[in-house]
């Protein structure tokens, strides 16, 4: 499902970051952890096609997305990848429901209703982002990430702002949604509380990785 080979990334005027090779089957969860500055978010953006690697390839469903053009990449991401950002981003002027349906590849209203019900935000769909709590926003973000029936869900620090109880709850929601949508789930975090919950873990070590 997901495979990376020898990917590295170099910011302008900065050292090259080399990332470990990954391989993940559908329906499985992988945790990528590391300290701040270890390139976690960069790694996630490379997997999501938000950035292109300096070298190496990212294969999703055996397609090398690193070779795609910008607009093809946008299209591929819209169709097959769901992203939960560290911070919840919403379009402020439209309702939560419209935010769930915003993607041109979203599956439509009935899916939005059922996902919202599972995530217990079905009563908030006609509100606006600024009218709901941070926790509710995060659940809405998770809901939006699966609206396109993704093959891969990427979550960036989904639990960093949450207390223990909610941390576990959000993780369960993510895994549940990944399972129901038959998607692979990758969580990028430095939250040690998650380590005990997930077996499949890759550690990013800034010192090791930048050695080359």
């Amino acid at each position: 499902m997901l495979e990376t080979k020898n990917i590295s990334f170099q910011y302008p005027n900065s050292e090259k970051i080399v990332f470990p090779d990954l391989s993940l089957e559908k329906g499985k969860t992988l945790m990528i952890c590391g300290e701040s500055g270890s390139g976690k978010t960069t790694f996630l953006q490379l997997l999501a096609g938000l950035r292109k690697p300096s070298s190496g390839s990212v294969f999703i469903d055996k397609q090398d997305i690193s070779s795609f053009s910008q607009s093809k990449l946008d299209q591929f991401r819209g169709k097959h990848i769901g992203i939960v950002y560290q911070q919840s981003y919403f379009i402020q002027s439209i309702s939560i429901l419209d935010n769930l349906l915003v993607s041109p590849y979203s599956e439509g209203n009935s899916k939005a209703q059922s996902v919202a019900k599972r995530l217990k935000i079905d009563g908030l769909l006609h509100r606006y982002a600024h009218q709901i709590s941070v926790g509710q926003q995060q659940r809405a973000s998770i809901a939006r990430s699966v609206m396109n029936q993704p093959k891969l869900i990427l979550a960036d620090e989904p639990t960093s702002a949450l207390d223990d109880a909610n941390c576990k709850y959000v993780l369960e929601l993510l895994q549940e949604e990944a399972r129901l949508n038959e998607a692979a789930l990758i969580i990028v975090t430095h939250d040690n509380r998650l380590k005990s919950e997930i077996d499949n873990t890759v550690e990013l070590n800034p010192i090791l990785n930048t050695l080359s």
Partner: peptide, 13 residues
């Protein structure tokens, strides 16, 4: 942020 979000969910530039 809104515009970036739109791009990330599949809208072309």
């Amino acid at each position: 942020h809104e515009l970036a979000l739109m791009r990330s969910v599949g809208y072309k530039p």
